[in-house]
Design a protein around this nucleic acid. Structure first.
Lengths: 322, 322
DNA sequence: CAATTTAGTTGATTTTGTCAACTATTTTAT
DNA sequence: ATAAAATAGTTGACAAAATCAACTAAATTG
């Protein structure tokens, strides 16, 4: 047994208290920090509630008053008056519903859209001002921390977006470590692999690097706000074969088309290299990965029982003709 | 040359936009999520402003009205009335200042303290409710992300504090990768070492792990907000010798006593292990490290010229008798 | 098809926050 | 030393934001 455990598994009461106290501190700090409590946003004539209503109209396309009321939890009478004000100011239009004579769909007018754009610009400037005191690393860390929080707290739209992900294929300092780390963390979490697995990945990466030839091998790294969150690699093998390796996505970045994007890049590279075929080795435990492989034209050609990293599993081989 | 460069070094505009959009989303989400906008906190008779005032009285010990006014940015007249209400309700006491007949120090009464305790409990429950849908590790990640945000935004560019650093000596998934990464990034930045160095570190860590014996070897990792930012290790060697390895701090965490803290832990472990002596290998390039070694009783015993990682340098050996 | 529910409106009112004028001190400038 | 200016806080008048309850009109239910 390689691993040495020190810390307790059970959450300790005082730790929970510390966590909660920390969150409370954060809440208090963050509310004051961003001036979220100001009544009048950016010295405009609109209150925070006004802006929230406009935002709902803009993004919850074709909402009714009730939709907004439910989303924001405000008094119907109050909302009614706010909407009438907006209508009078030419920011919002009510489109009576043919199927329900009581309700109307709400949309922004061009003027309303313009107002919201201005608001967003002002908000962006405020954020930019906040960011400009930070070093570039700190900026990306801030972004990643917020993104992660939104994700953790299950915010709507908190899931990462493909547009925020950057894919590159050079190797920079820290990348090797990040590759190892990503594997260690993801496989430990998903399959309970112990640290021997991480060690194993380290060895395979080491071997790969010794023979690495930028013209024939390629590693793609996907990063979001500076953090490596996925990867794929192609290695040249004898007889115009290629091997696909280290295809991995952090769980919270799955299901957004990133796996496909990486696989596409890899396959395109294989075509450029004029490989006859590409193979990969995996285990039967990686169920979801398998379906991605078959979707991209790979076929299972072998399955051998093995005991690895404290697990009984089948080592599988997939091949795709190019 | 192993490295292949593709992407520009300059931060890309669209990524900044994504970052800002992400932050705006976070702001919007977080304000609504936590009900920070509700007027009446926890169905009490107190408004958000009321509670903020009480909080200031409680924690900015012995504030005056002006102190609160400056902290919260509210109208003096409004505050005056709020305070009078609190006085009448027996929550706050005004202690006229002998040195200034215009002002008074404000303190909470026992009743005021009790009210704040209740408020805090309600707030804790709300947070607990938010947390209970999360897995334990998600909870800790949430706490860490918030702590980091508070830290990043509060003290932009400020030096990290030793209190925020946690030192542990178990090995968790991702740690091996983090160790490699830390070395790769720091040495690239400070001495321009190329990725071969990171590869070399990977190999040495791999070798170490093969022979790793928790009873005789130890790796300490220093982390701040969940990120590994420093480390040190002791490996057992024949003849009751110990070798000190991988002593490294991220540059921005130097000069806060962390190096000393790590070294102390390492030396204490060496005493426990009853080593006769401890040695370490370094190069003449690591000038600042050398001074730390001598400060902790190490003496240079050898210096051999070498060419490593694209650099001409002297490999040096330091020894300390225990 | 009467009774009930739902969507939204309106009037009355309260709560919350703002502005300006004011008093009583303390500090500053001459 | 003393007049002028600044500071700390109060008060009155008022405006804005939000709530509550009673209401209308349309849709749904039994």
């Amino acid at each position: 047994m390689l691993q040495e455990t020190i810390t307790a598994k059970e959450p300790i009461i005082s730790q929970e208290a510390a966590l909660i106290a920390g969150i409370r501190k954060f809440n208090r700090y963050y509310t004051s920090q961003l001036g979220l409590l100001q009544q009048h946003i950016f010295d405009s004539e609109y209150s925070l509630t006004d802006v929230r209503v406009l935002y709902e109209v803009q993004f919850n396309g074709k909402t009714t008053a009730t939709g907004i009321r439910e989303a924001l939890g405000i008094d119907p009478g109050y909302l009614s008056r706010i909407l009438r004000k907006f209508e009078k100011q030419g920011l919002v239009i009510k489109h009576p519903l043919p199927e329900d004579g009581r309700s109307s769909h709400l949309t922004l007018t061009a003027r309303g859209e313009k107002l919201m754009r201005t608001m967003n610009e002002l908000s962006d400037n405020q954020i930019r001002q906040m960011l400009e005191n930070l070093a570039p690393e700190e900026q990306t860390k801030t972004g990643e921390a917020m993104r992660q929080l939104r994700y953790l707290l299950k915010a709507p739209g908190g899931a990462p977006r493909l547009e925020d992900v950057e894919i590159r294929h050079d190797l920079r300092p820290g990348d090797l470590g990040n590759i190892v780390r990503l594997h260690g963390e993801v496989y430990a979490k998903e399959y309970g692999y112990n640290i021997e697995f991480e060690q194993y990945v380290m060895e395979t990466i080491g071997e790969f690097m010794k023979a690495y030839d930028p013209a024939k091998d390629r590693v793609w790294l996907a990063s979001c706000f500076g953090e490596i969150i996925g990867m794929i690699a192609i290695i040249h093998r004898p007889d115009r074969q290629g091997q696909l390796r280290w295809f991995l996505l952090r769980p919270d970045f799955r299901g957004i088309g990133l796996g496909r994007a990486l696989m596409d890049k890899a396959m395109e590279f294989c075509r450029q290299q004029q490989f006859k075929e590409v193979y990969l080795l995996t285990t039967n435990q990686q169920g979801t990965a398998a379906s991605i492989y078959t979707k991209h034209g790979f076929m299972k050609t072998a399955s051998v029982p093995e005991t690895l990293w404290g697990q009984d599993l089948y080592e599988e081989r997939y091949v795709r003709k190019m």
